[in-house]
Design a binder for these strands. Structure first.
Lengths: 246, 246
DNA sequence: TCAGTTGTAGTCAAAATGACTCTAACTGAG
DNA sequence: CTCAGTTAGAGTCATTTTGACTACAACTGA
């Protein structure tokens, strides 16, 4: 950058010369069975930073905003590139723009959050530089990514109570017990099976199929199907979630 | 929306040459008595565009992101500069980044929404280029600002049901009837006074003062005070609102 | 055939909600 | 001074929703 002779104007022209960089990142959640209990818990994939700043620390997948994509498309594309994942649900989380998020240059990050099905999560290849972590056992992450994940978790728990979100962590067909497990994993508390079933059948957007899940050592549970909208609408606007209380 | 869609004027290579511009805009809500009914209704200030594109159309107050400010500070500062308003509540709404929001250059707008007290709104000087409009009677706005206002309204109505937001549209002391009027104005339906009172006293963050509002031709109502947090925390992170149902 | 396990329906008391009534406390008209 | 008119604010009651629990159904594996 070349300096002007005028000191007073120097700051201004420097600022104008170097606008804040725009980045897109995504917090991706998936449900995987925990090693210990076997019950499903929340996991998320992180990528290792291969350069400064924060070299060798883990960070959210992301990158600069590609010019040809809308914000949401850029998030989806970047997800595909870095982790190979195609999310089932993708929504904007927040724009983080604090002054000192990155030591060198000012970076404004528009962060998305996504849900992928467990089956997808299985497929996602781990590598030297991409690894899955339990959402409640992250170490220190690069930048302000710990805060970002915390906020994404808060948002996920909040949306969960609106009832239309849990299905995006499951496959096409699922039992009510599986939905309940999602709730228990995300909200981190037990839910009464009978009462949960009652509420789901009232409000939520599911319909019974005529299939049953065989193989357990018990009465085979009925499989259900999600009938709501699949929220990876690649539209430019925000996703308005109805306050259909669960 | 019936907005006219823009044909991209610039070609792709021109776009790639320059990074997307970052802008900050704000949707500001205030309560003002409507001309006809006298009951309070939602109003918001708009500024007239004095240059192309969309010259002479009304638009949300906003401007480029100043380098020295966090996103929230930039929003507050810009509000002060363009309308003279200091909001009582300020929260990030959404980052809009569609490809063709602005005909010439690609612009990513980080939009905030704000609530100001009615008294503040009175002070805000109208001028040739700043004017207040009823939120339900906006004409065609510049850019995609109609969509943005719609989304802000949706968010306001949603947050209203969490119970901690209505007070930011009122003064320091208020009667329960005034709070009820806010609800009725924002949610656009009547609310039973007795039941509303009962709910407020259970959950919401208010305490009675020992003062009463004199002057009406009826029993003087008690004045109350908001005891929650004033949410113009100039922090960098998102405002997490507890789901304390109202 | 039986014990073990989980799905699914149903019961019941407690809590929350919505519609409503009743009284208190002020103002202004006569 | 008295009374009609108005809104504040407490209370009542039937209905709905919620949470805890019970009972039965339907499968597997021994």
């Amino acid at each position: 950058m070349e300096r002007t002779q005028f000191v007073a104007a120097a700051n201004v022209s420097e600022r104008l010369a170097q606008p804040p960089a725009l980045a897109i990142s995504t917090v991706i959640f998936a449900l995987r069975p925990s090693a210990e209990s076997g019950r499903p818990t929340l996991w998320l994939p992180l990528v290792r930073r291969i350069r400064e700043p924060f070299k060798d620390l883990w960070a959210l997948p992301g990158g600069p905003l590609t010019q040809a994509d809308s914000l949401q498309d850029a998030a989806a594309r970047n997800l595909q590139d870095t982790t190979g994942l195609a999310p089932n649900y993708l929504e904007q989380l927040y724009a983080f723009g604090g002054l000192h998020r990155s030591p060198s240059q000012r970076v404004v990050s528009i962060v998305y959050w996504a849900l992928v099905q467990s089956t997808q999560a299985e497929l996602a290849q781990e590598s030297e530089n991409v690894k899955w972590f339990r959402a409640d056992r992250l170490g220190e992450l690069a930048f302000d990514h710990n805060e970002i994940v915390d906020y994404a978790l808060w948002r996920l728990r909040n949306k969960m109570e609106y009832g239309t979100i849990a299905y995006h962590l499951l496959g096409e067909k699922f039992t009510l017990a599986q939905v309940r497990e999602v709730y228990e994993a995300v909200l981190d508390r037990t839910v009464d099976p009978a009462n949960f079933r009652r509420q789901l059948k009232q409000t939520a957007y599911i319909e019974p199929t005529d299939q049953f899940l065989q193989g357990g050592k018990h009465r085979p549970p009925r499989l259900y199907r999600y009938t709501g909208i699949d929220s990876v609408t690649s539209g430019t606007g925000p996703a308005q979630h109805p306050p259909s209380r669960l």
